[in-house]
C-alpha cells in the first residue's frame, strides 16, 4: 500500500509544470524514503532528477517499493482538476496498474477522486557520480529565467562564463550579440535576491538555449537556483523544493567543432 498526503497540492502542480515540457512520461519510484524520478528527454541531451522526501508530506506510507509509470499529459489533466488549496492524497495498492488522486477542499465539502492507469516504462537509469564542481553559482531563479528568455532571442546557444568577478551569459546570431554580466552581490536584505559564486577554477561552457528555457519552468518552486559547472561535464541546474528536496536538471554541453 502506498499513500501520500499533501495539504497544499500546488507543490505537485508546480513539479509537474517543471517536468512536462522535457518529458512525455516518467517513472515515479516510491520507497520509504520518498518519491524519486529520473528521466532523460527524448534526445538524451538533458536529464531530470526529482527527489521528494517522505518527511515533507503530511502523511506518507509506502509498505513496498513501487514504480509508477505515468503519462505526464494524463497526470496534467487530472492535476488541473484540483484547486491550489485542495488537500491531495495519492494512493496505490502494491503491484497496482492504476493510481488514485483524491482532492479535498479545505472545508471538506467537496471531495473528488481520479483514477489513472499506470504504464510500463522501460527507462534507462544513469549513474551520476558525485562531482566537485569548479564553479557554483547561486542566483535568483527569476533572474535566471529572464536571462535565458532574453538570450534565446539572439541564438540557439548560450555561453556561460564564470570567473571570481562574476558570471557572464552570452549569445550571438543573425540579429547580433548579447552579453549579460552578473557580479556577486555585495550585501542584500533578502537572501533569495543574492548572487553568490564559489569558484575553484574559471569555467566557460556552451549550452543549448531551449533546454535552459525548459528548466526555468521550475522557477515557481524556488526563489533561488544553483548552477554547478566544471569543464567538459554536464551543467547541473538545481531548484530546492521547500521541505521536500529538490529538482535537478543535467544538461550536456555543446562542444565547439
Amino acid at each position: 500500500m502506498f499513500e501520500a498526503r499533501l495539504v497544499q497540492c500546488s507543490m505537485l502542480k508546480k513539479v509537474l509544470e517543471a517536468i512536462k515540457e522535457l518529458l512525455n512520461e516518467a517513472t515515479f519510484d516510491c520507497s520509504d524514503a520518498g518519491i524519486q524520478l529520473q528521466a532523460m528527454d527524448n534526445s538524451h541531451v538533458s536529464l531530470v532528477s526529482l527527489n521528494l522526501r517522505s518527511d515533507g508530506f503530511d502523511k506518507y506510507r509506502c509498505d513496498r517499493n513501487l514504480s509508477m509509470g505515468i503519462n505526464l499529459a494524463s497526470m496534467t489533466k487530472i492535476m488541473k482538476c484540483a484547486g491550489n488549496d485542495d488537500v491531495l492524497t495519492i494512493k496505490a495498492q502494491d503491484n497496482a496498474d492504476n493510481v488514485m488522486f483524491m482532492f479535498e477542499s479545505q472545508n471538506q465539502e467537496k471531495v473528488s477522486d481520479y483514477d489513472m492507469k499506470l504504464i510500463n516504462l522501460d527507462q534507462e537509469h544513469l549513474g551520476i557520480p558525485e562531482t566537485d564542481y569548479s564553479c557554483i553559482i547561486k542566483m535568483p531563479s527569476g533572474e535566471f529565467a529572464r536571462i535565458c528568455r532574453d538570450l534565446s532571442q539572439f541564438g540557439e546557444s548560450v555561453v556561460i562564463s564564470c570567473t571570481k568577478e562574476g558570471v557572464k551569459f552570452s549569445a550571438a546570431g543573425d540579429v547580433g550579440a548579447a552579453n549579460i554580466k552578473l557580479a556577486q552581490t555585495a550585501n542584500v536584505d533578502k537572501e533569495e535576491e543574492a548572487v553568490t559564486i564559489e569558484m575553484q577554477e574559471p569555467v566557460t561552457l556552451t549550452f543549448a538555449c531551449r533546454y535552459l528555457n525548459s528548466f526555468t519552468k521550475a522557477t515557481a518552486l524556488s526563489p533561488q537556483v544553483q548552477l554547478s559547472m566544471s569543464a567538459d561535464v554536464p551543467l547541473v541546474v538545481e531548484y530546492k523544493i521547500g521541505d521536500f528536496g529538490h529538482i535537478r536538471y543535467y544538461l550536456a554541453p555543446k562542444i565547439e567543432e
Partner: peptide
C-alpha cells in the same frame, strides 16, 4: 544540432 553532446558521453547506464 552540431556539437551537441549526449548525456551517455558522461554518465553510464546503471
Amino acid at each position: 544540432m552540431s556539437g551537441q553532446k549526449k548525456l551517455s558521453s558522461f554518465f553510464k547506464t546503471v
